[in-house]
Design a protein around this nucleic acid. Structure first.
Length: 439
RNA sequence: GGAGGCGUGGCCGAGCGGUUGAAGGCAGCGGUCUUGAAAACCGCAGAGGGUGCAAGCUCUCCGUAGGUUCGAAUCCUACCGCCUCCGCCA
């Protein structure tokens, strides 16, 4: 599918090589619960060839090193004897180089295979094939009792004169929007409100780059498999528009060894998100639900392996807390194996109630990625001084998708006359504006 | 974008192509001394892989990738990054 480039292989394989090799059948079986094709190809043969190459190279190198020491001594005593040894050693060196080249090929092949394999679902994740088999684990609030037929957010927004899809299409093509007036301000207010809540809980705010390198996208797992979903720039080096702040923020610590005491590290970051959504044509074509560009406040955590599951719980609750403060009814779903994202080992989706759509819609997705991303991005930590570094666990979750939060406010706080109340917690961020009225 | 300079271990900073995984210093850790601390002195102290119960043994790594060589941190090439000066710009 994707022509591999050299940059692709800087990242390590996502699954632990040895684990895959030693528990091949069990790993394959568990991965298959995600559905879709799974092709590990000639992995096992390549893995054993890699082992052979490694050990023969090592003994050759040892021989060469020993011989070189001899050379060094002889060079002082008997320079003429050098010539005789040279020929032999040249052959050994060439042999090592040949094996090294073959090893590079083999490792490239192994990586090419493993980089396309998703994370192993955690044992607490229910097996299932679609969203229908997700499990509701929590619910907060109730559906608002609106004494009229609720409108969808795009009707409300357009009637208020605050959402302009037509002009956005003129300017940028389909699936873009101009926000206008107080609704634009609401979006901005939500961002600040969310960041404030998170930072008060100890998340450190990060404002990340919106364009990243290929290897960064590899680190979190967007590449190489989902290249079609991303926008990328021309030129060298090519760069990708981030599909979520998770990408730059998780890679913030790429190639680092963190100190055990510093964990968990918690960040929150606002960013626009860009998604080509090639496969989504036809779904949610109207309105703000599915756009090429949207705003999101993201939470990212780096945790010790034995703590990541509880960090997932608290992160999910931190996302829910935003909805509670905004008074928005929602439920929390534990995703089944077939519905989880590529990098996740366990995911909770938070779904907010949208009266206009008469449906629950995802407004946050919180995932524990285990060591999947940290293996690719080489993010490690040292539990105690003197210990060997080990892979950290990474987590990420929306806190929240801002555009969808605006939608939720429009639809849940709408009135019969088309005006919309603004939740009280946002008033300070709205410069005193307490409702949306037609422009 | 143009010109020049530089990329070595947590940091600073040495390093005629061969006993350098790397001097020295600082920070860190352990110890001696001290009532305690500081100072002083002694010692330990990078990452990854293979093998082994372990101690250990061994291989690889001096921005990255190649090349030259019996041998490269040291020579060559390309790329990346950083700094300084100039230009341009929110």
């Amino acid at each position: 599918m994707l022509p591999p480039t050299e940059g692709d292989y800087k990242a390590s394989p996502m699954l632990d090589l040895r684990n895959v090799a030693q528990n091949f059948d069990a790993v394959v079986a568990r991965l298959k619960t995600r559905g879709g094709n799974l092709d590990l190809g000639p992995f096992q043969a390549l893995f054993s060839e890699r082992g052979e190459l490694n050990s023969s190279m090592q003994s050759l190198a040892a021989r060469r090193n020993a011989a070189n020491e001899e050379m060094m001594k002889k060079a002082k005593e008997d320079p003429k004897a050098l010539d005789a040894l040279r020929g032999d050693l040249r052959a050994v060196s060439q042999d090592i180089k040949d094996k090294q080249n073959r090893l590079n090929e083999v490792e490239q092949e192994i990586n090419r295979i493993l980089l396309l394999i998703p994370n192993l679902p955690h044992e607490s994740v229910p097996v299932g094939t679609s969203a229908d088999e997700n499990v509701q684990v929590k619910s907060w609030g109730e559906k608002p009792n609106l004494p009229f037929t609720p409108k969808q957010h795009f009707e409300l927004g357009e009637k208020l004169g605050m959402l302009d899809f037509e002009r956005a299409a003129k300017v940028s093509g389909s699936r873009f929007t101009f926000y206008k007036g107080a609704l634009a301000r609401l979006e901005r207010a939500l961002v600040t409100f969310m960041i404030d809540v998170h930072t008060q809980k100890g998340y450190t705010e990060l404002l990340p780059p919106y364009l990243v390198l290929r290897e960064t996208m590899m680190g979190t797992g967007q590449l190489p498999k989902f290249e079609d979903d991303a926008f990328k720039t021309l030129g060298d080096p090519e760069r990708f528009l981030i599909p979520t702040a998770e990408v730059p923020v998780t890679n913030y610590h790429a190639d680092e060894i963190l100190e055990g005491e510093s964990l968990p590290i918690r960040y929150c970051a606002f960013s626009p998100c860009f998604r080509a959504e090639a496969g989504a044509a036809g779904k949610d074509t109207r309105g703000l639900i599915r756009q090429h560009q949207f705003h999101k406040v993201e939470m990212v955590k780096f945790a010790q392996p034995d703590k990541s599951l509880e960090e997932l719980e608290s992160m999910t609750d931190d996302a829910c807390d935003i909805l509670r403060r905004l008074g928005l009814h929602h439920r929390v779903m534990l995703l089944c194996t077939g519905d989880m994202g590529f990098a996740a080992r366990k995911t909770y989706d938070i779904e907010v109630w949208l009266p206009g759509q008469n449906a629950y819609r995802e407004i946050s997705s919180c995932s524990d990625c285990g060591d999947f991303q940290s293996r690719r991005a080489k993010i490690r930590f040292r539990a105690q001084k003197g210990d060997k570094p080990q892979l950290v666990h990474t987590l990420n979750g929306s806190g929240l998708a801002v555009g969808r939060t605006s939608i939720a406010i429009l639809e849940n706080y709408q009135r019969d006359d088309g005006t919309v109340a603004i939740p009280e917690v946002l008033w300070p961020y709205m410069g005193g504006i307490k409702e949306l009225k037609p422009l």
